[in-house]
Amino acid sequence: MHELSYATSMLDTIINAVKEQEKDGKKIKKVSEINLEVGELTFINIEQLKFAFEVIAEGTICENAKINVQFIKPLAVCKDCGYEGNVKAEDEFEIYCPNCNSMNLKFKGGKEFNIKNIVVEFDE
């Protein structure tokens, strides 16, 4: 279940970022939202990711944080005609260039997993 490793990485990154902010004298009470960018080619099950994060975040500053996900589509680049853009799959194994019908494609992007930003509540 690679969702657990992604969730652990998220939690570690956020807690470290909060600690950095607290070095500047800002007291953060809680993280209320986490906004992610996730590439479609990561094949992450978002519900499993949210569940894993909920379990490991219990008792931390991220407990009960809402996770929002924006998916990033991969771009196909045709090695034959130079087309760059989205493609449609005829079935799950055959993907063609919409310009020249070539299957000689490479993909850019779609494997991202980024914490875009977080929303926090400060202690006054």
Rank of each mutant, 00 (worst) to 15 (best):
K30T: 10
N16C: 10
E90C: 02
N16M: 07
K106R: 13
Q21A: 10
K27P: 01
C62F: 07
D12N: 13
C97A: 06
P98V: 06
L49M: 06
C81W: 01
E121P: 12
Q48V: 06
F93M: 13
A76M: 04
N101G: 01
I72Q: 06
K88I: 09
Y96D: 05
K27V: 15
Q70L: 08
D12K: 11
D91T: 09
A76K: 02
E37D: 11
M103V: 12
E58I: 00
A7D: 03
C100K: 09
Y83M: 06
E20A: 03
F122Q: 14
E40V: 06
E90W: 01
E124P: 11
E22Q: 15
K29I: 01
K50H: 10
P98G: 02
E33S: 03
E124N: 15
Q21F: 14
S5P: 00
P98R: 11
E84F: 01
V38D: 02
M1T: 07
A52H: 12
N99M: 01
H2G: 00
K73E: 11
E112Y: 04
E33F: 08
I67E: 08
N86K: 15
V87Y: 00
N114P: 03
M10H: 02
V120C: 13
E33Y: 08
I44L: 15
K116G: 05
I34R: 03
I14F: 01
N68K: 12
H2W: 06
A76C: 05
